[in-house]
């Protein structure tokens, strides 16, 4: 599966979009903090394993980066994969028809 398809698949799930919202509100969160935020701010009682799987999918799509600081893993949002989507339909509309899905 190519990267663009990964990005769309990652964004197709509402919980994953909320995870990105929460990382936008505060970048660099542990799994523990993300789970607590999903539960208390959004009423989403997803299991830790489920949230971990969501994060794995976001990481595969390049939308989340995991960095280890000391013994802790922190999750950061990376919006770079969204750039081609914006350029394809919003900014580079005239060239979109001839561009292939390769990125």
């Amino acid at each position: 599966m190519d990267r663009v398809t990964d990005v769309f698949k990652a964004l197709a799930d509402p919980t994953r979009r909320i995870i990105l919202d929460e990382l936008t509100a505060r970048d660099g969160q542990t799994l523990f903090e993300l789970c607590a935020r999903l539960l208390t701010q959004h009423g989403l009682g997803s299991s830790r394993q489920a949230v971990s799987q969501h994060l794995g999918l976001l990481e595969d799509a390049g939308l989340v980066e995991v960095r280890r600081e000391g013994r802790c893993k922190f999750h950061y949002i990376n919006t770079d994969p969204l750039g081609p989507i914006v350029q394809r339909w919003l900014r580079g509309g005239d060239a979109a028809g001839s561009r292939k899905e390769t990125t």
Partner: peptide, 8 residues
């Protein structure tokens, strides 16, 4: 290690 890794 597992707890700290996940921030628990």
């Amino acid at each position: 290690e597992a707890l700290v890794g996940d921030g628990i």
